[in-house]
């Protein structure tokens, strides 16, 4: 098919998606960025104030910076725990053990539960355990932090496991066989053969966990809601609280949201570049 013909089919195949993309993503996004330079209660009574909202996001209180720190730490820890667990599970479930299929579904399932429900269930579990010491999850930010990490790991590991399984199954059998004939130990095979070949999966998985952990909202709201004293408040929750906590601060919340977007986009780009460069073709 030549290019001209491709162009002719454009309205049929691309237009619907493009229209949906515009309505659901492009327009709200542009509107959102514009609103971050305004003082407003609803989108129809916005008044332009320039950079004021961005300045207030940092100067009014230390919430944004604190939430940023908490989110960053949480993301760093989560990316490690999730990917280690997911990869270990994937290795375990590609060895032809009995019940592999059942176990794969079991590990995947937490991912299908909504964040609020999960947060609620985990708060019951964690509070149940902590009650032996006569405290609950709101008692210290450390409890909240590790509670969130546990929740997030439990929820996302199954999903990442599926991606790793697909990656591991794509490794040609000859390569593994050749390695074993050459006398490579299991550890060497894992390190020198399997890992380089699942690099694309690792890219995808770190990208997904990074973005998901950094953007986490409902689990945060349901598990700790920031207690004690906003110490476990992550960025998305802080944006929400800023938007709704005071009248006249919607613009500041919007400004924080724009900064949040830039951060996530920058992080993801850097991360994607870094891992891409290490991918190998089989």
């Amino acid at each position: 098919m030549d290019k001209r013909q491709l162009g002719r089919w454009f309205p049929v195949f691309v237009l619907p998606t493009l229209a949906a993309f515009c309505v659901a993503f492009f327009v709200p996004f542009v509107l959102g960025v514009w609103l971050s330079f305004n003082r407003f209660t609803t989108v129809s009574n916005a008044r332009f104030v320039g950079l004021e909202n961005y300045i207030r996001a940092f100067t009014a209180d230390s919430d944004f910076v604190r939430a940023l720190g908490f989110s960053a730490l949480f993301t760093a820890v989560s990316v490690v725990t999730i990917n280690l667990l997911a990869f270990a599970l994937a290795l375990l479930l590609t060895r032809g053990l009995r019940g592999t299929n059942l176990l794969r579904s079991v590990f995947f399932m937490p991912n299908l539960i909504g964040g609020i429900v999960l947060g609620y269930v985990f708060s019951l579990l964690i509070n149940g355990i902590l009650s032996f010491w006569g405290v609950d999850i709101t008692y210290s930010a450390t409890y909240g932090f590790w509670g969130l990490v546990a929740l997030n790991t439990w929820q996302l590991a199954g999903y990442m496991m599926v991606i790793y399984i697909a990656g591991l199954q794509n490794i040609p059998g000859e390569l593994i066989e050749a390695a074993s004939i050459d006398g490579a130990s299991a550890a060497t095979t894992l390190w020198r053969v399997k890992l380089p070949l699942v690099m694309p999966s690792i890219t995808i998985c770190t990208f997904l966990t990074l973005a998901n952990s950094f953007k986490m909202f409902d689990q945060n709201l349901a598990l700790t809601a920031g207690a004690p004293e906003r110490e476990t408040q992550m960025l998305a929750l802080d944006i929400y609280q800023t938007f709704y906590g005071r009248s006249g601060w919607q613009g500041v919340g919007q400004a924080k949201a724009v900064l949040f977007f830039l951060l996530v986009a920058a992080l993801a780009t850097v991360q994607l570049r870094l891992t891409r460069s290490r991918e190998v073709d089989a």
């Binding site: 290019k3 162009g7 492009f26």
Partner: peptide, 21 residues
Amino acid sequence: MKTGKRIVAVLLTATLLLCLG
């Protein structure tokens, strides 16, 4: 793909204006 690009551009502006309206 010049037409394609043009259509994209027109569409994006159109929806934006529509929504603003």
